[in-house]
Amino acid sequence: MLSFNPPIEENPNAEYPKISVNAVVGPNSYIFGDVRVEDDCFIGWNNLIRADSSTPYFIGKKTNIQDFVVIHCHPNQHVDVKGKKYGVYIGDEVSILHHAQPHGPLYIGRNTFIGEGVSIYGATIGKNCVIMHGATVTNDVKISDGRFIEPGKAVWKQEQADALPPVPEKFKGLNQEIVDHYYRLGKSYRKNTPFFI
């Protein structure tokens, strides 16, 4: 379901999502408000992307948002990307796995992996990062490019973020494998089933 957001004081303009004709959106996924979804994105089942309190949102090319993901942003809070404000900015070729909750203000850089059940509330995450399942990232920390967060770890102080290790060699190709798989899977769903728009 795609819909305008309801106008309120914090977000007075009703905007409709802008979805690339080359993106796919699965059954029971809801996208409200000023959300731009770029080419070849895969948005799976039962996702909620709600740009009603702080906008706009951007989801980059070949990003996959799998199932039961909730994306929202605190009212009137933003990240700055090249001089423009966004409630949520997700770069190209990002993977966001099942049951993750990325909450803005949030920036996620290109080729970053967000594992199952990851909880994010206010952060700037660099490119080429791997955030493993069940981790928590919050309190507007800034995570440098190529950093690794182990399963279940909480990162809420900047000194914790600064001390994160580089992505281990065994995980460096993980995200690109997933990006490639979901790129092909989305094309096949659209071609061979009635489920995706």
Rank of each mutant, 00 (worst) to 15 (best):
195 F>M: 14
152 G>T: 08
130 V>N: 03
71 I>T: 06
182 Y>N: 12
35 V>I: 14
65 I>R: 01
168 P>H: 10
75 P>W: 04
72 H>L: 02
191 K>S: 13
195 F>P: 10
196 F>W: 15
162 D>L: 07
37 V>D: 11
72 H>M: 05
111 N>P: 05
144 S>M: 09
84 K>M: 01
102 P>M: 12
9 E>V: 08
28 N>K: 12
128 N>R: 12
167 V>N: 10
184 R>W: 11
14 A>I: 05
119 S>D: 13
156 W>L: 07
78 H>D: 03
112 T>M: 01
26 G>T: 11
128 N>V: 01
5 N>Q: 02
194 P>I: 14
45 W>H: 15
154 A>T: 08
10 E>S: 15
79 V>R: 00
153 K>D: 04
7 P>H: 07
48 L>H: 09
158 Q>C: 03
163 A>P: 08
84 K>T: 00
54 S>D: 01
164 L>M: 05
184 R>C: 08
137 V>G: 02
37 V>F: 10
28 N>F: 14
31 I>T: 09
32 F>H: 03
14 A>H: 03
113 F>N: 12
39 D>Y: 02
138 T>F: 04
178 I>V: 15
70 V>K: 03
21 V>K: 14
44 G>P: 09
3 S>F: 03
188 S>R: 15
25 V>D: 05
32 F>T: 04
30 Y>P: 00
153 K>C: 03
183 Y>N: 09
37 V>L: 10
9 E>G: 00
5 N>D: 05
151 P>N: 11
186 G>K: 10
116 E>A: 10
34 D>C: 02
125 I>K: 03
55 T>R: 06
60 G>F: 02
95 S>V: 09
56 P>W: 01
15 E>D: 07
25 V>M: 04
189 Y>M: 15
168 P>V: 14
34 D>E: 13
96 I>F: 05
8 I>T: 08
173 G>P: 03
